[in-house]
Design a binder for these strands. Structure first.
Lengths: 221, 221
DNA sequence: CTTAAACTAGCACATGCGTGTTAGTATGTG
DNA sequence: CACATACTAACACGCATGTGCTAGTTTAAG
């Protein structure tokens, strides 16, 4: 039987995905058009459409690829051990990985925004992936701030923490960080990276310490 | 001398502005196209372009009109006196006027978003009007929470408060409220109006009370 | 080498956009 | 009534988009 050239579809889609991510960084999710991505990848639209039947499929794939990329890049960075500075300083440096404070993280934030935009237009059934990931991260941070050991299995952080104060302050911090990121991007003239970092630390200082925490009075005489 | 029919340009522009606001509510600022607004108003594009030379002029006018409308609608509502409930409850009900908790305020939030989007693309020289208005509101709220009398002149609230803690917590609250609004709109499945209201109250409870406040221990036995 | 299948490149069509132009209409003064 | 002017409606052009279609090219089995 005759068999023609075979192409690894998954690999071609991945190539297209990378081109599409570059387009998102330049023009946002709305710029992810069939023509635009094909041009960015150096293909013709006809070729592209052998791997994505229409724009919707293309965007859906790109959003999925973006989510995976972000999870691989940001979450591990937030989990790398930090030994310097006070507890607040350590937690702050973790949370800052989610904030658009420099070019690299501004790019990542633009990618998160594209995911959020897509999820707003096409609500996923199991709830927002991006939101749940970020909530888990903040939950871990607040738990650490209150003296709890980090969980071993990352999947455990997806579940509510038994300490209700951890849940509450994780929500407060998560909301605050979202607002901080949004203000840095939308009104950079009013909120600089420096003020954002300061505000973050002020909020963390206000988190009530847990009964297990032995550093509550650390900086006081 | 012959004088043809005269039309009140300002009034026509205002008519167009109202149509454009309806378009923003339906499709966002990007939906404010010459054709789209003309159709919404029941005009032809040719007529519309006698009052707005191009799309930029149209959008600039609409953003200005929207800002004015919002200032007239939201700010006074936040200033109406509240006598029931604890201080936290009173402040919460003021701040909630800024949150997209019901259909009316969701509409207003969509309009604010359009203003922010415009200001991001065309940064105003004196800083973001929307941002400064909101910061002043939150400053007033925190000041009240710490026992200060409300200022007489609304323009005074645009200046920093002498109490540094007021400035700090106004910034924290402002950021938090922005995040809350963004989460309600972007991930409504995760953050409902009810949880948002609860989170707001939890944050307000955490604001340190000022030396002038005589209600600090109000709810304690 | 032949050939069937997979792939590629490009074109065509319909739609929607901003904007410029132009013919036609309404209106108030003379 | 006549007319100059403001206004209205419609069209035309160029551009970008999504999507369907088709002729040509590559590849590997027979």
């Amino acid at each position: 039987m005759n068999v023609p050239r075979l192409v690894d579809h998954d690999q071609r889609r991945a190539e297209l995905g990378e081109a599409a991510i570059r387009v998102i960084l330049r023009e946002g999710l709305a710029g992810v058009t069939v023509r635009g991505v094909a041009a960015e990848a150096g293909w013709s639209t006809g070729s592209l459409r052998h791997y994505f039947r229409n724009q919707h499929e293309l965007q859906a794939y790109v959003v999925q690829a973006t989510t995976d990329t972000l999870r691989r890049r940001v979450l591990p960075r937030a989990q790398r051990p930090r030994t310097q500075g006070s507890v607040v300083e350590q937690i702050a440096s973790i949370v800052e990985e989610m904030l658009p404070l420099d070019d690299e993280r501004r790019e990542e934030y633009a990618l998160w925004s594209a995911v959020v935009e897509w999820e707003r237009q096409h609500p996923p059934e199991g709830g927002s992936v991006a939101w749940n990931d970020q909530r888990a991260l903040h939950r871990q941070c607040i738990a650490a701030l209150r003296g709890y050991e980090p969980v071993r299995e990352p999947s455990q952080a997806m579940l509510p923490h038994p300490d209700a104060q951890v849940e509450l302050w994780a929500a407060l911090l998560h909301t605050f960080v979202d607002g901080l990121a949004s203000q840095i991007m939308n009104t950079p003239g009013q909120v600089s990276a420096g003020t954002a970092a300061q505000l973050l630390r002020s909020l963390l200082e206000a988190v009530p310490r847990g009964p297990l925490d032995d550093e509550s009075g650390r900086d006081r005489p």
